[in-house]
């Protein structure tokens, strides 16, 4: 469905994307994973025709460089930085983009309803919350019912509740049979949506893997802060160190270094040793 072949993008002497090649199958969800500056957003902007590049990007049989308008007709795009006309209402915004995408005005109301913004249609976009704007962006991307959805860090600016709601909406979209390409550096997002992960760093592809393998393959680690009852700190430290954890004392609790996919392991270890964990926090 989508084919990137030897994509290279340079900004002056800086190479943002370096000889990137990969395919995305129809109805698959591919996550581009990597730290800031890895080249994820640049690759997406090349697909959208917003940047000039060398190499080829094909969508079906269409060349994104030469047939950009036809390619964009097959894409729905949710940007990382939401840039709408702030004084336009949500409904007018949807109607404006519906006209640009040759869809019926009724479709504008339908997508607002689909993303839960029907009752906010009269509000200026500038007055919507971050989560609402993100849902509006998803609604606009779905206006023409495109076969491919392209999302750039779709939940990066959302709080936990809004992120949850948005991921639910995206899961529905994916189930409806769309091909999804998205960039992310959030593990839970990758696990919830992706069929495959392409890991990038410094503009290059490092590897591809299944979402479940990502923490282990990359050795992704995190720190879990555990709050423990008074008097059990020392025994907890002993248990965790015996279990192979790197652990340190932290105020009324301990700080444990774990693999990102094994955050519950120290809690289980303490539970097995009859040490109660009063609270925890993932750092």
């Amino acid at each position: 469905m989508i084919q990137f072949a030897h994509l290279t993008k340079q900004f002056g002497k800086f190479t943002a994307v370096d000889d990137l090649s990969f395919d995305v199958s129809p109805q698959a969800a591919l996550a581009l994973w990597g730290p800031n500056g890895a080249g994820k957003t640049t690759a997406i902007k090349c697909l959208l025709g917003l940047l000039k590049y060398s190499g080829h990007i094909l969508v079906d049989t269409l060349d994104a460089k030469k047939q950009g308008k036809m390619v964009r007709r097959m894409l729905g795009y949710v940007p990382q930085e939401l840039a709408f006309y702030a004084d336009m209402s949500a409904l007018d915004t949807a109607l404006f983009y519906a006209r640009l995408k040759s869809t019926s005005p009724q479709r504008a109301a339908e997508v607002l309803d689909q993303v839960g913004l029907a009752e906010h249609g009269d509000k200026p976009v500038g007055a919507l919350s971050g989560g609402m704007k993100q849902r509006l962006a998803l609604g606009l991307a779905l206006l023409a019912d495109p076969p491919i959805l392209v999302l750039d860090e779709p939940t990066s600016n959302l709080d936990a509740a809004a992120r949850d709601h948005f991921l639910h909406l995206l899961s529905d979209v994916k189930r409806a049979g769309k091909t999804v390409v998205f960039t992310s550096h959030r593990l839970e997002e990758i696990e919830a949506l992706a069929d495959n992960v392409l890991v990038m760093d410094q503009g290059r592809m490092l590897m591809t893997c299944a979402p479940g393998e990502l923490p282990r393959r990359l050795g992704l680690r995190t720190q879990v802060k555990l709050r423990l009852p008074d008097g059990q700190l020392d025994s907890a430290l002993t248990v965790l160190q015996a279990g192979g954890f790197t652990v340190s004392r932290n105020g009324v609790g301990v700080l444990v270094d774990v693999l990102a996919s094994e955050k519950a392991r120290p809690i289980n270890a303490l539970h097995d040793a009859d040490i109660e964990v009063m609270d925890f926090e993932v750092q």
Partner: peptide, 11 residues
């Protein structure tokens, strides 16, 4: 940034 979003549409 509105231009970038506008040009990401099929126009």
């Amino acid at each position: 940034g509105t231009m970038s979003y506008l040009l990401a549409q099929p126009i």
